[in-house]
Nucleic acid binder design. Structure first.
Lengths: 346, 346
DNA sequence: CTGTTAGCGCCTTCAG
DNA sequence: CTGAAGGCGCTAACAG
């Protein structure tokens, strides 16, 4: 690997110290523990640093001090809308700390998951945040011996290694479906894309609620192993109507699919909310579509924010909570479903 | 900063070497340059490493070798849709390399921009990717002396420091507006959110094309310093119609705004494409909305992909291109605007 | 193919 | 408040 561009040698702490006739450690302190250096000397040091263009070497710092100031964040996909919300929370919380985030993606691959965790561990991370992990044995072993706090954003159906924060997607989905049933829908379809831990749990919740009501019909479940998108929503609605022509409501694994269903329904001349549509996530557009989208709000921003907050607290010596933090969910009734019985006009 | 969890000492290269009766450097080589160690010994080393649970220390490696294997990526916002597309390209390209990405956000703040670049520089990065930089003097100076290749994803109206890749947003926007004029629209409004380098250039393009056609009217331009969103699109359409009741077409700074305008138009009972709507970016949903959204495709994925590709090539010793790489754009006519004159039915 | 020597730049510990 | 000594874990560079 070439490209070691010829240039003036890097300025080191020692160079600055020499130029000032003090010792390196004093310069180091002026930077990290200003209160331990006299006002006057500190100013002179800071000026000199500026003048000489000194830039600290984080690798050397990490090696000597054994902490890198990096929090590793691992998710199945970095560029999904679901992760985007979490990431917003992460960025907001980390902004006012002196930690940095290193993002990595496992691309839904358990092997890659382990590789990436190993990579984090190679960096003396201050903490690790795992979002939607697959939880294979190798992974769990790695995490148990991790020399730093670990927090997971998970579906709260079992207690994982380390601290946990999240919601119960099975309960959330079941609540949503019960709501749809209360709205008078009976032939409720389920649309999904690529499966992961969370979407499987939502499907469980759907099945549970349908079963309770004696409405189960496998023809109502349609999914395809493809990233969820508006386009996929359009396609899956078509497929669903072929399999179950009398479908009267569609529960989508997320809002993108739901938006596709809404557009496709308009195209097909199907009236909404006579055909009910329910999404999942409450993305930004949901409240502003026409009609506004009934959906399930899951506090993704808070998940990211609180997960990093937990990590930071523990790094600072607080005792980690022993119980998982349940951030709940909320079924939001809007215009793409009929109001539930007992509500609305007389 | 506490939390130095009590635990068995970290296994080092030396430990592995001792256990095998070889020298540390040999173990090191077995890991990084396998071909330089005999087949047999290498196997024994690898087994021992596994057995002892050795994890390399990247900080030590970076310090000794002076390269960290990290590419720093800086953007005004990590969680915008615009960046999402770029990020997809970045992730795809970096996936098959042995480099890692460190993302950072400047939150549209020039001071923060400098801070973050400094932070990158502290890490012996293999390369730096800047997306939508503000380009203040301090920043430029920093970059000029950077000890690693720098590539920028930019608006191509001037040649920046380092390598450059992007498109000309001014031309793109002007083309789009000329297209709208060709479609027969005359009172074309412009909607925008928070300004950044690119959106300013798009506004320039809009003004240019309107001026050419003698259609300029400042009442047609509406923007608010808020992140673009579907919601904002709804609000701004309302405001635009108050300022210019006879507006017959809306050019939006991006597709989110356009989607909001589409929904709001439906709510207000305004027929589309009698009211024309044109977005920007060609996000995934654009081809599948009802009607499908006329927009300007900007190859964000390719920008991210090619930017990292350039960096990797240069790191590997190839000569950097002297000219900026123009990835172009494409105005995509769909259902939210009337077909241009001379097209369509007789 | 394997080993020796000597740091990389900074921070910890312990003294003044 | 300031400093001296030593080493973090790894890898260049050069031998053999």
């Amino acid at each position: 690997m070439p490209h070691r561009r010829a240039r003036t040698e890097r300025v080191t702490l020692q160079d600055v110290a020499d130029a000032l006739g003090v010792s390196a450690i004093t310069v180091s302190r002026a930077l990290r523990e200003p209160e331990k250096v006299s006002e006057d000397l500190r100013q002179r040091i800071l000026n000199k640093i500026d003048e000489m263009g000194y830039v600290p070497d984080l690798a050397a710092r990490a090696l000597a001090s054994r902490h890198s100031g990096v929090i590793g964040v691992l998710a199945p996909a970095l560029t999904s809308h679901a992760h985007l919300g979490i990431m917003r929370g992460i960025e907001e919380r980390v902004r006012t700390s002196d930690l940095r985030i290193q993002y990595a993606s496992s691309r839904h691959d358990p092997e890659e998951e382990i590789r990436q965790i190993r990579l984090f561990l190679s960096q003396h991370p201050a903490g690790i945040l795992l979002s939607g992990l697959q939880e294979r044995d190798g992974t769990l072993d790695l995490l148990r011996t991790a020399p730093c706090p670990v927090v997971q954003i998970v579906d709260l159906h079992l207690t994982p290694v380390g601290m946990a924060i999240g919601t119960n997607h099975c309960h959330a989905a079941a609540s949503a479906v019960r709501h749809l049933i209360a709205c008078g829908y009976r032939r409720i379809g389920l649309l999904g894309g690529t499966r992961d831990v969370r979407s499987e749990r939502r499907q469980e919740g759907y099945c549970l609620a349908m079963q309770e009501a004696g409405l189960t019909d496998s023809a109502l479940v349609v999914s395809e192993d493809a990233p969820t998108s508006v386009q996929l929503g359009c396609q899956l609605l078509q497929r669903l109507r072929r399999q179950a022509p009398d479908v009267d409501c569609v529960f989508c694994q997320n809002d993108d699919l739901a938006l596709g269903v809404l557009f496709e329904a308009q195209r097909l001349g199907l009236a909404v909310p006579e055909l009910g549509i329910c999404g999942y996530n409450d993305l930004g557009f949901a409240a502003y579509s026409q009609p506004p989208l009934t959906t399930v709000r899951v506090p993704r921003f808070e998940m990211g924010y609180r997960a990093i907050d937990l990590l930071i607290r523990v790094v600072n010596g607080e005792t980690p909570p022993s119980m998982p933090v349940d951030l709940g969910y909320e079924v939001i009734q809007r215009g793409t479903t009929r109001p539930p019985a007992g509500t609305g006009a007389p």
